[in-house]
Simulated scan of single mutants.
Amino acid sequence: MTAPDALHPRGPASDAAFADLVRPFERELRAHCYRMLGSLHDAEDALQETLISAWRALPQFEGRSSLRTWLYRIATSRCLNAIRDGARRPPPSPVAPFEAPAPNGDERVTWCDPYPEAAVDPGTAAAERETLEYAFVCALQALPPRQTAALVLCDVLDFSPRECAEIIGSSPTAVKGLLQRARAAMPARGERAPEVAETELAGRLAAAYGADDVDAVIALLSDRAWLAMPPAPHRYEGVAAVAEFLRASAEGRGGRYAVSAAGRAGGHPVFRCVLDGRDRGLLMVIADPSGTAVQGIVRFLR
């Protein structure tokens, strides 16, 4: 690997050397920014700002910490600044083109979008891949920003409290306090449905959803099913509430969605929804642990 000292002079050669130096870290830094911010767009912006800042600051890098730790310090700082500047504020809620029934629940986190499976390192361990699941990232967004940073750095990326303190500009004692509070606030992870079963079930629901066959959709739901529609803050909980909304949507939309499989994102099957030739966002289907019934429907509106 090229030594940082060799990159201090500016020019095409040093540009290429810098790119070679940071390229092995780009994928994991992008995932880190996503966990911090919950938004693919904001994560990409934070990554690009990180790389630009690293390039500008490279002459000051003295190698007292590893290059990886140094890059994470820059990336985490950019993410914390973005949160402070409003990156995690709820975006405007879209107005439904029909008379929607009143929701019986609400979503505190409405800016999350699902991380595409294609962007995940195929060699990443399953435990790390779980930390890009939609529910986990949404739970991170509900934490205070520095707690999010400490939890991600220590529990996801295996930095020590001392290293985490260096990255976020704190002390190991303070980091331990942040970790304790963050861990206590995070919900317990539930069991996951087998991937094959979930994919098959999701395909059946997507077909019924695209055909406005509400009865067929309802037949696939578990008793505790729910439906959310980020960035709208509404949540419909229970089969009756979900059915009421879907019927109102089907009657008021004025056309059927063309629904096509779009792989996996956020740890679950997703489908592209197109209406009148326009991309209307994604449909995510979450199965219950048995893989025999749909537990959650997340309709990412566009």
Rank of each mutant, 00 (worst) to 15 (best):
D45M: 10
G210Y: 11
V259D: 00
P289S: 09
K176A: 02
R278K: 07
M284Y: 01
F18S: 04
G267E: 02
P172R: 08
L47Q: 02
A241R: 00
A57F: 09
D121Y: 13
Y236W: 15
L179D: 02
I286K: 13
G190L: 13
R56M: 06
G238F: 12
R64H: 03
L80N: 01
A119M: 15
L283R: 00
Y257G: 03
E128I: 14
I74H: 01
A248M: 13
Y134M: 12
A54W: 01
D276N: 04
Y209N: 02
P145G: 03
D113F: 06
A293H: 02
Q295L: 15
G238P: 11
N104D: 12
P231Y: 09
A208K: 01
D288R: 14
P194Y: 03
I297A: 09
H268D: 00
A149T: 14
N104Y: 12
M229K: 14
D215T: 10
A54K: 00
V152Y: 03
I52T: 11
A165R: 05
H268K: 11
R146V: 13
A82V: 09
W55N: 09
S222T: 15
A31H: 03
L140K: 15
V274W: 06
Y34V: 05
T110S: 04
V242H: 07
P97Q: 03
G210P: 04
